[in-house]
Amino acid sequence: MDEQHSIADSATKTASNDEQGLRTRIERALPTLPRAGRYAIAIALALLWVVPLIGMVMASVRPLSEIIDGWWHLRGMTITFENYREAWSFSSAPMGRAMLNTFVVTVPSVLVVTLLGAMAAYPFSRFEFPLRKTLFFVMIMVMAAPPELVAMGNYNTLRSIGLFDTYLGLILVHVGWGMGWVVMFLRNYLLGLPDELEEAARVDGASRYQIFRTIVLPYASPALVSVAVIQFTWVWNAFFFPMVFMRSSDSVLAPQALPLLKGRLQIDWGLVAAGSVMTMIVPILVFVFLQRYYKRGMVAAVAD
């Protein structure tokens, strides 16, 4: 760390309106060498971090011959959306259908787990009931457990109830699997709901269910958005569960379809890249637009 300037920083925070504050602000606006160096390193590192992803984007809009030559060669660059078009209707794994399937699975999975999770989290945050401690530990255990552990049991369950290879089957698995962390997360949030609010509502005549709907849910709404955003990216990105539970080419999900785009002998990078960009753009947009909730949720989910 460059000491002079980190201090200048905090000084401007505390004494921004006096003369010294002004001076340090001017100093800060004209980066001296060490600080400029830090900027350079920081920017270089951040760019380095996205180079692989940039490569994917570049490859997705260029013909295969140019990709094989190296996507970083910008001279004579041809921009084409042929890869996207082809991937969208690729015969063994049409990305168009796969994207639709992913939406159909992800949206209900997120909504259901958020609502049912909030309902279950409420008693966990408020009341004593039998087995509370045990359930609590089981939820934490599921949070840490690998998804492979539930694959065999769920495979047999879905087969026997006829939901194998269906949207509903996969949705149920996602909801059951996400319930643990959602309940834990929302419970922690609801611990902050003052008892008096609930009591005031009871005295005002509200039933337990009315309290949940009119007091608890609105109070928890920032946390609900966080849960929904994070769960959305997880379900959308999920690879293992669809691999196990979705088999027919009509029901394949987007992440699952990507390895199929590789082809047999020579990898068609253009197709793979176009499919990848299509798949990743959704969670990335969600992240970019709901960053506040995503970050807050990530930090709260694990930092409690």
């Binding site: 971090w49 692989p52 994917m56 990105n237 390895p259 798949t279 990743m280 990335i284």
Partner: peptide
């Protein structure tokens, strides 16, 4: 950004 990208990607 990489952490929000699907792991298969």
């Amino acid at each position: 950004l990489g952490f929000t990208t699907p792991t298969v990607v």
